[in-house]
Structure formats: structure tokens, C-alpha cells
Simulated scan of single mutants.
Amino acid sequence: MYSLQHPQIDESFLQLNSKVEEVTTLLRSMIKPSESVKKDVEATTLKEATPESLRDDNFMVTKRKNPECKLSSDRFTFMRQVEVEQDERSKARLERERVAQNFRKLGNANYRQEKYEDAKEMYSQAIENIKDSPILYINRALCFIKLGNFKRAIVDCDFVLNKLDEKNLRAWLYRAMAYKSLNDEPNYENCIKYVRKYHSKQLEFIDAFIEKMKATV
């Protein structure tokens, strides 16, 4: 048998309320952190989110660079450089053409005075500046013919026909004249065949040139 004590004289009962409150407070602290703790947690989280906090002896956060931006910038720089170089080449070409034209005029003047050697040299100087002008090679070929250097004339004519203009009228005619002067009838006839083929609308001029050539060669 045990005796039932009166609640008013039971000391443990007197402490019940305080113990309940203590337990309740403890449970609350486990479920919901205090404001001071919450602030500390938020502060720590915010700090951890900053780049400065993501840095230690073994790790450092850096900003990522966009490779496409660099490629675009490099492409623009390259294209700009190409444009500049093209512009510079165009200006240089114009200057060389101006110089070549002056030499050509001097060559024409010497040729009219029958100074064929001087004329040849002037055309050669022009070619040094502009190497893709058919008229310069053709004029020089005619000078070689006048100087009796027929094989060298054929070289200039061949360069025009093979590299610059395969249908060039004067190149075919001067080539025919050079072969005729060398008594090379097969190559002469071949030249006449092609010049007639490529310039069928100028047969009258071609025939007149051939008649005059036969009278002088």
C-alpha cells in the first residue's frame, strides 16, 4: 500500500510547472531558433554566398570569361587588318600603274623615232612595275621583232597567250610574224588559224595585216 499525499504538501508537484515550462522552452528552441541565432545563421549564409568567402589556400572563385566575345573580337580585328592591307595594296598598285604608264609613254615615243632598243628598255621598266599588262609585253615583242630577236618576241607573246589573254589579237599576229621571220611555216600557219578562230569578226583587218607582213618579211 502506498499513501497518497495531498497535492499541497507534494514538493515535486510544486516544481511541475517550472519543469513543464523548461521543457516547452527547450522544444521551441529545437523547432524554431531564436532571433539571435536566426540572424547569425542568415549572416553566415550571406557571407558564404559572397566571392570573398569562397576563397582559401586551395580554391579561388574567378569570373568566367565568355569565349564567344573573344572570338568575335579577334574576328573583327582580323577582318579590319585584312581591309587595311587590301587598301594599302590598292594604293600601291595605283602608284605602280602610274609609273608603268609613264615608262610606256616613253617607250612609245622611242618606238616612233625608231629607237627600238630604247623603246624595249622603257617597256621592260614598265613591266617591272606591272607584270600583268598584256600591252606592255606585246609592245616589247614588237621591239624584239624590229631588232631581229624573233625567239625573244615569241616568248613575250607566249606569256600573254598562256598567262594573261589567250585570245589577244596582237599577240597572235606578232607571234605569227616572228615564226614567219624564222621560216617556221607550221607554227606560222597555226597562229593564223587561231587568230581567225578567235577574231572571226575582224578577218578583214587580219588579212590586211598578213598581206603587209608578207611584203616586209
Rank of each mutant, 00 (worst) to 15 (best):
S18V: 04
S18L: 04
E21L: 11
S29P: 00
P33C: 04
E35L: 04
K39Q: 14
K39T: 11
D40R: 12
V41W: 06
E42F: 11
E42H: 08
E42L: 14
E48M: 12
T50A: 10
T50E: 13
L54C: 08
R55V: 07
F59T: 12
V61W: 09
T62A: 10
K70G: 02
S73N: 08
S73K: 15
S73E: 14
D74H: 08
T77G: 03
M79N: 13
E88I: 10
E88Y: 03
S90H: 09
S90G: 03
E95W: 04
R96H: 12
E97Y: 10
Q101D: 09
N102H: 09
N102W: 02
G107C: 07
Y111W: 12
Y116E: 06
K120H: 07
Y123C: 10
S124D: 02
A126Y: 01
A126V: 05
E128Y: 01
K131Q: 14
D132H: 11
P134I: 09
P134G: 03
I145Q: 07
K146M: 14
K146P: 00
L147F: 00
A153Y: 02
D158H: 09
N162Q: 15
L169I: 09
R170K: 15
Y179V: 06
S181A: 15
L182Y: 08
P186T: 05
N187G: 04
K193F: 13
Y198Q: 08
K201P: 01
F205T: 11
I206P: 01
I206F: 02
D207M: 05
